[in-house]
Each structure stands twice: as structure tokens, then as C-alpha cells.
């Protein structure tokens, strides 16, 4: 009786996906807001791309990463929400009472969250293309943007799942995601680094990992294959994932252990 780890993960991820699809309001608002960002910022601010610091870049390509990252955060937050819901309705305990691998019980909602944000990112990219997006690195570049979004989402998913498993409280998990929201704006959100006036925001943007994600995506979308520009974001993702996934694993270990 029982399964291998892979089948456990497969079965439980499938169920988490189904659960997500059954409550469309868990992801539709997030998707709408992210698309809204894209439309409004592009329509309202695209004039500033005339400034020399933009180097003739298309503002749509410049602002697209903001929309993608905000969707990723919302999507990844879903992983934590899913776990909290399971704990609250007793389903988490029911799973713990089965021979299912402990890892798969925690990984199921996280994988579903990743899939959710993968699909969201594709939808946003489609909207961007409909708005006239041109990508310097072509199709491969779009894939890189997608992977960066998923990678950054995974870092958030680890964080939100960690909070969920630690607090077992829906409000706390929600609030935990909110802390990351300002990070989108304390960065090179609307203009390049050189155009940021206030020194505190410059400092914030420098230490904010989101800045490097934006930079990576913008490099691919606007500048072309420039190694260092792309690598910065990947390094930021790796560091963030190492921290948040360790946090999630430790919280998970505590939550599934028999204290």
C-alpha cells in the first residue's frame, strides 16, 4: 500500500489545482489587477520613455516586468492560502493520517501555486503582445521572462507556505504576503535607477531584490542577451529561494512532526 514520492506529489498537486480552479476568485482579481497595471501604466506613463535615460526603450517592455512580478506574488501567495485552508478544514490532518509522504503534502499546494502563476504570466504576456510588445531576444527571451517569474514566484511561495505552516492562520498568511507588496514599488518600478531622485528610494531599490528581477527581465525584453544583466536576477532568485524554502521546510517539518 502507499505510493512512491512522485505519485504522491502528482496526486496531491492535481487535487490542489482542482481546488484552485473551483474557487476562481482566488486568482481572477490578482490577474485583473496585474493586467490593469500594465494597461494603466503604459497608457499614463509611456511618455517618459522619451527621456534620454530610457535610451529609446519601449515603455511597454519596461513596465511589463512590474505586471508580471505582481502577478507572481499574488499567485505564489495562493500556495500559503491553500495550506491554511487545508489546516482549517481538517483536511491537512486527514492527509497526515495517510501513508502519503510528508513532503508531498506540503509540496502539492506549492506546485499548484507555481502552475497558477505560470498560466497567469502567459496570459499577461499575451495581453502585452496584443498591446504591441516587441521582445529584443525573441521567443527564447519570452521563455526567460517566464522562468524568472516562476523562480521569483517560488521564492514567494516558499515564504507564504512557511508563514502558513508556522501560524496556521489565514489572516497571518495574507498579511505575510502584503509585506512583500511594497517591494514592487520600492524599486526601479516606473523609471530606471538613474532617474530616481530621492536618495532613500535609491537605497531601497539597491537592497531590494525585486530591482534585480526587473533588471533581468528588462535586459531580455529591451537590451538583448547581456549576461550580467540577466544573471543578477537569477542570483537574486537563488538567494531568496534558498532562504524562503529553508524557512518553509523548517516550518513544514514542525507542522507535520508530532511535537
Amino acid at each position: 500500500m502507499g505510493n512512491g514520492l512522485v505519485k504522491d506529489i502528482w496526486v496531491l498537486s492535481k487535487r490542489s489545482v482542482l481546488t484552485t480552479l473551483r474557487s476562481p476568485f482566488s486568482f481572477i482579481p490578482n490577474l485583473l489587477i496585474s493586467t490593469f497595471f500594465l494597461l494603466v501604466y503604459d497608457s499614463g506613463l509611456s511618455g517618459i520613455s522619451q527621456l534620454p535615460a530610457f535610451d529609446g526603450a519601449n515603455y511597454l517592455a519596461f513596465i511589463l516586468p512590474v505586471s508580471v512580478v505582481s502577478a507572481a506574488i499574488g499567485g505564489a501567495g495562493g500556495a500559503g492560502q491553500g495550506i491554511v485552508k487545508d489546516i482549517e478544514n481538517g483536511f491537512f490532518s486527514r492527509l497526515l493520517l495517510t501513508p502519503a509522504s510528508r513532503l508531498s503534502i506540503v509540496l502539492g499546494p506549492i506546485i499548484a501555486g507555481m502552475l497558477q502563476l505560470f498560466v497567469q504570466t502567459i496570459l499577461i504576456l499575451i495581453v502585452a503582445f496584443l498591446m504591441g510588445l516587441e521582445v529584443a531576444t525573441g521567443f527564447l527571451g519570452v521563455l526567460v521572462v517566464l522562468l524568472l517569474a516562476v523562480g521569483w514566484g517560488l521564492a514567494f511561495a516558499g515564504y507564504s507556505a512557511g508563514i502558513a505552516l508556522k501560524t496556521k492562520n489565514a489572516q497571518a498568511a495574507q498579511a505575510g504576503t502584503l509585506i512583500f507588496f511594497p517591494l514592487i514599488f520600492l524599486s526601479t518600478t516606473f523609471v530606471p535607477y538613474e532617474l530616481i531622485e530621492s536618495s532613500w528610494l535609491k537605497v531601497a531599490a539597491t537592497i531590494n531584490p525585486t530591482t534585480y528581477i526587473f533588471e533581468s527581465m528588462r535586459t531580455v525584453l529591451i537590451d538583448g542577451w547581456k549576461f550580467w544583466g540577466i544573471a543578477k536576477g537569477i542570483i537574486a532568485i537563488m538567494i531568496a529561494c534558498a532562504i524562503t524554502i529553508t524557512f518553509a521546510a523548517l516550518s513544514a517539518k514542525k507542522a507535520v512532526s508530532r511535537g
Partner: peptide, 19 residues
């Protein structure tokens, strides 16, 4: 211990698969 978003049949099927 029930996931309220699944049907009764889906819940049972899932439990069977886990076992």
C-alpha cells in the same frame, strides 16, 4: 477532514489514490 471544494466522489477517489 474534508476539502469542501471537492465533491464526495472526488474526495473518496483522492483518498483511494493516496492509499
Amino acid at each position: 477532514g474534508i476539502d469542501p471544494s471537492l465533491t464526495g466522489r472526488e474526495m473518496l477517489h483522492l483518498q483511494c489514490r493516496i492509499f
